[in-house]
Write a protein that binds this DNA or RNA. Sequence first.
RNA 1: GAGCCACUAGCUCAGUUGGCAGAGCACCGGACUUUUAAUCCGGGUGUCCGGGGUUCGAAUCCCUGGUGGCUCACCA
Length: 496
Amino acid sequence: MRGGLMRLPANESESDLVKARYDNLEKLRERGIRPYEGDVQATHTADEVSEKVDSIDEEVSTAGRILAVRSHGKITFMDLMDRSGEIQLYFAHDDLQDDYEVVDLLDIGDLIWVAGKPFRTRTEEPTVRVADFDIVGKCLHPLPEKWHGLTDEDLRYRQRYVDLVVNEDAFDTHVTRSKIVSEMRKFLEERDFLEVETPVMSTLAGGATARPFITYHNALDMRLYLRIATELYLKRLIVGGFERVFEIGKVFRNEGISTQHNPEYTLLELYQAYSDYEGMMGLTEDMVAHLAETITGSTEVEYDGEMIDLSPPWRRLRVVDALAGEGVDVSAWQDDEDARAEAERLGVEVESGVSRGKVMEKLLDRLVLPDLVQPTFLMDYPVDISPLAKRKDNEPEFTYRFEPVVGCMEIGNAFSELNDPHEQRRRFEQQLEQRARGDDEAHVMDEDFIKALEYGMPPTGGLGIGVDRLVMLLTDSQSIREVILFPLLRPLEEGG
RNA sequence: GAGCCACUAGCUCAGUUGGCAGAGCACCGGACUUUUAAUCCGGGUGUCCGGGGUUCGAAUCCCUGGUGGCUCACCA
């Protein structure tokens, strides 16, 4: 396209700032410079130049984005940023002669390639004395202010690319996220777990109690659901003999948005045959401690102003004991109604008709969770809210199930997997009864899963970890949106 | 879904009791050959989130709509 053509920005004032950049773009083209082309073979990153400034005697080349310009007439300093960090550039008329005029046509935000010898300035700042340079990408919008960055959260999420350019913390958080997931894979692969991929779309959304998103397949004329968990497919693979599997993937839950919830989020689920929830507790604390140590250098992390010690073993707290600590005696409840009455007495709202298990879960959320800063395994959840977990031998009202809680956040869910097909059918049938009573989050019947269990599934321990929340913990982020590159937002209305 | 709060220049923010729309950075013009939040001189670039109302006069008060944040509810 010709330089004169441009999409005008929404308001006049920005238009002036953008116009100046289009003017510079046109002037570059008039000089025969192609502002989106260039041979960008870089020999060094910015940090490598800084590190080796005293040992390199030959010319280096590097590429990145201009973050700051300090012009002094016949010389100009710039700060160049790449993925590794920043390096100062020194442009001098004496070195560049006529090409020095082009330096004036560079704007903050432009992407350039430079070549020259590294040196230190009077103030010892590592610097590249530019002998040759090329613009390889023009920035047509002004960047946010250099030391406050971009703080408007809405804008930061809508234009994450700008956020990442100007807010180093945001950049680092997402680099750390990537490292966490990578380390997680290594940790599990070293323990002989196999990574697999299971369907995102299917005709049933099972494995968790949550409302699914619904979509549609035209050719098959069929309603499909986006998965809410990977559990039931992964356990089929345990039946199939994989014995140790994991999947790190997005799941989708049609629920509200909060600082701890995004409708699509990343879940690690793993299953280990011939293990159980004890084994899963060990694996959880080992893995989280290992990740903290590897990523942050310590098993002690600061989260929301509190020091959290992630080194094993973690505290174990039975659900009934946790509630007893709040003055709630679960054994005194004769029926669901007693449970609901107790909730009302404690000022905790519960929906009418919910089971005692749901009441216990609610009381835990409201009374216990807010105090659980240090890592804790909340253990032995009631059976009526745990349709896929094995009952405890000596307490059939409870299951071998736990949730790891850190920094007052539930970061996962795990249990000894129910592997008795007849018991599983009864559990699903109970869930259907709850569904019939209006609970549209109750689990659905999955005949094929039961058939899989009928072929024999070994005793198995299963664990799910909310990867986003784990990343929050290890990056001291108080909102899940900080650790998701593009969190779900309402679309902006066209034309306001 | 409910309550509270916020929205002013490209960005970060002031704006008093209702009385001419402001600052820093960015940007434009000028000076400047080792600066680094460069400095110095000059320039304010605006749908005060949108719409309506009260008023001689509204960024400011009222109503309404939008978006976001926080708290709650639901969930991991």
